[in-house]
Design a protein around this nucleic acid. Structure first.
Lengths: 222, 222
DNA sequence: CCTACCCGATTGGTATACCACCGTGGTATA
DNA sequence: TATACCACGGTGGTATACCAATCGGGTAGG
């Protein structure tokens, strides 16, 4: 046996493949296909699929499994959900976050280079939002934030990722952190919601523009 | 093979046993023990445990599994989370719910008999809150509401379940529905939060009173 | 008597053989 | 020719044998 168990290895490889869009949304998966492809037996493959199902990254299909398709109606609900979670998170953060934790988050923003790679920006964005909600010190809000960022992850690749848009995002992030530092809960919540909506609009615009292209590339977009 | 698969059968039986408190919080579980006890092989037992783990009803322990203990710190976070979810849910419900759906929910309340069984009241409460958030027509909020009610389920058994307290709960439920009917989002959200806090206070009071007793009965309460 | 070690029992993790189910394609018959 | 049926291949579901790790108790040695 390797250092880490086969099950978590399969889980991580599949998860990575799905989130990076190497595996196409809607793509059919079979346990035996993955078994040979990933060089492991069906048991850990099945365990990994079960975990991914709970995360909403794969679904059981009529016969077998599929990579979760991208569902635009679901996306709208998800972004609304995210507004609720983050607004509550930053609001509670204003009451509870230590100055040190706020500074650590701000440091994260200062360290970000908008001219860096798309992967870095992507990872950075996820990390920031989870850590931001983390200031609320409510494990359930954090889990909800993580879950929503995971489910959003694939569409975020499709978002226009110009250097300007990244700089804008960071500016909006900084504004939220500033409001938290001032312990202004209403302002912080409003800025968080505004940021999510601004991101959403850019996301939907580029999704709409690319939709035909994406279908042509084989994506299943409901 | 029976009509329904072994896996979901094992899942439902374990879930029922845990939520009804027939299985003690903190109790150690072994796959082979469950295998013989539930008359199924380890494969479906493991699958069921994996699903229950995702729901937070069982946890992996150093060696084997345990029924999720009742964690009072977690409970506080959970109730706070619930406030966030339900406040947002009823608020959105004011915008989106059809009059017919609101009436259906009200009918549910009218049908409730406070002098009925504790089991009925318990199930009724869960059902109401999930359906209430359902009016928001946001699947993620509904899933969050379901999840939080599930995690709260076991402690709700410990809550004082007098006929008066049930009548009070129904009255508070009705007040929320009335506010939704009037499309008064702020009022509805406020009433929902007030109801959750009122429930919480009674819950914590009886938990505190029974804590010694519960420990004596073998419950693991962190 | 105490301590250290070792061996066996029990744990979850993994591989694999077998099962029932079902879609699909070919073939035989009307 | 058209239709009905059957057989085969591939699916997830299940049972089970084996593995490495580890915890505990008993025993041997100081």
């Amino acid at each position: 046996m390797s250092e880490t168990s086969q099950t978590v290895l399969m889980y991580e490889r599949l998860r990575e493949g799905i989130l990076s869009l190497e595996m196409t949304p809607g793509e059919r998966l079979t346990e035996r296909g993955l078994e040979t492809e990933l060089q492991a037996s069906r048991t850990p493959v099945r365990a990994a699929l079960t975990r991914l199902e709970a995360e909403g990254l794969v679904q059981r299909s009529v016969r077998g499994w599929i990579v979760a398709p991208i569902d635009l109606a679901e996306l709208a609900s998800l972004l609304e959900y995210r507004e609720v979670i983050e607004a509550a998170g930053v609001s509670l953060a204003c009451e509870r976050a230590s100055d040190a934790d706020i500074e650590a988050l701000d440091e994260l923003l200062r360290a970000f280079d908008p001219s860096g790679s798309s992967e870095q920006a992507h990872h950075m964005g996820t990390d920031f939002h989870v850590k931001l909600v983390g200031l609320s010190e409510n494990a359930f809000l954090v889990a909800a934030a993580e879950s929503s960022m995971t489910r959003l992850s694939r569409t975020r690749w499709l978002e226009v990722q110009t250097e300007q848009s990244r700089a804008l995002a960071v500016a909006e992030h900084r504004a939220v952190v500033d409001a938290v530092r001032r312990r202004d809960a209403d302002e912080a919540a409003g800025l968080a919601v505004a940021h999510i909506r601004s991101t959403r609009d850019r996301l939907l615009a580029s999704l709409d523009a690319d939709r035909r292209l994406l279908r042509a590339r084989g994506f299943t977009i409901v």
